[in-house]
């Protein structure tokens, strides 16, 4: 319990530091009013906007206001989406709130991450268990090289290669887009390559370790079928590191999606981040980064807790691991 509180406080501090960093770093790139209105804006328009947005206040007051607004879910308004060049006294009339844009994009990214994991977990676990069941066999060597290949490949390049082969040459699947079920296959496969490799590696070593234990010998002696021993007995006990790795890879997927979404024109938060970076839409960039960082920090926290729940030695033990 004490550990739980410590972890939550730590995560909150990290998010607070991220918010502060994003705020101050964002100011380094120049005058927000100029960024909003563009280089052709008149001095009067700039001054009006600065007054309306409170940009003439001391930076610390602006920072304080930013943090307080953020806590109530207000991440500011977009400089580009639904932005009107006529400066108004009321900011809400001149641009769309960025948080709405970010939240609108999240489901697509979640869907993609879930589909990628749907490929990666069964394939990775199967590869790892097979390799562990026949150590030093040809299958083991193939799994080792394949899993290292999955970790070594550049994701966006794999995506491009899949597009060339399956979409351009064979014409089986669309090159990109969103909507039909066919659209998700190539981006999900692209994203799955790395987690497949990592999950296979971890599964292999965890199962291998379990298979060397006495209870496995007992099961064999009792005449339990080999597949049952490997898949049920050992895999169940090897679950802890595997689940931890799946969680780790899930948070990596959320950032890996940035490039894959760009390649496949998948309208998730990754594509939004790239678009807003190229359009210098600062509030939107800041909001996306804070939201993704919050998601990743939450996933990491959950993984850590799941690890403790799954491991009886930690769950029932009094000492902190």
């Amino acid at each position: 319990m004490a550990y739980l509180i410590k972890r939550i406080v730590n995560s909150a501090i990290i998010l607070f530091l991220t918010v502060s960093f994003v705020f101050f770093a964002g100011r380094l790139i120049g005058d927000p009013a100029l960024n909003m209105l563009g280089p052709g804006a008149s001095d009067v328009a700039l001054e009006n906007l600065r007054r309306a947005a409170g940009l003439n206040d001391p930076i610390l007051i602006q920072y304080f206001r930013y943090v307080v607004n953020l806590l109530s879910g207000d991440f500011g308004i977009s400089y580009r989406y639904g932005f009107s060049v006529l400066p108004s006294e009321r900011l809400s009339e001149i641009g769309q709130p960025v948080i709405d844009i970010v939240l609108e994009r999240l489901p697509a990214t979640f869907f993609l991450a879930a589909a990628a994991m749907g490929f990666a977990v069964p394939i990775g676990v199967f590869m790892g268990v097979t390799a562990a069941a026949y150590p030093r066999s040809a299958a083991d060597r193939i799994v080792t090289v394949l899993s290292l290949a999955g970790v070594s490949i550049v994701q966006f390049w794999l995506g491009l290669m899949l597009i060339v082969f399956f979409a351009v040459q064979l014409g089986w699947l669309p090159t990109g887009g969103y909507g039909e079920w066919q659209h998700v296959i190539l981006p999900a496969l692209t994203l799955a390559a790395r987690p497949i490799g990592r999950i296979a590696q971890v599964t292999r070593s965890a199962v291998l370790e379990e298979l060397a234990k006495p209870y496995i010998m007992t099961a064999h002696a009792k005449g339990v079928p080999v597949n049952r021993v490997v898949y049920l007995h050992s895999l169940k006990n090897a679950a802890i590191p595997i689940v931890t790795m799946i969680g780790d890879e899930l948070s990596a997927l959320l950032t890996g999606a940035i490039l894959v979404e760009k390649i496949f024109a998948w309208p998730g938060i990754g594509l939004l981040i790239i678009d807003s970076l190229s359009r210098s839409d600062l509030p939107l960039i800041q909001a996306s980064i804070v939201v993704v960082a919050a998601l990743v920090v939450c996933v990491n926290l959950l993984v850590d807790l799941a690890y403790r729940l799954l491991n009886p030695r930690i769950r029932f033990g009094k000492t902190e691991a």
Binding site: N10, S11, I13, I14, L17, T18, V22, A25, G26, L28, I29, S251, L254, T255, G256, I258, I273, L277, I285, I289, V292, A293, V296, V297, N300, L301
Partner: peptide, 21 residues
């Protein structure tokens, strides 16, 4: 603490933002 905290952040995204700035 610093290590734990920084490890829990998405590094590619942070790198992207810093290089943007």
């Amino acid at each position: 603490r610093l290590v734990d905290g920084m490890l829990s952040l998405p590094s590619l995204l942070v790198a992207l933002f810093v290089l943007f700035v």
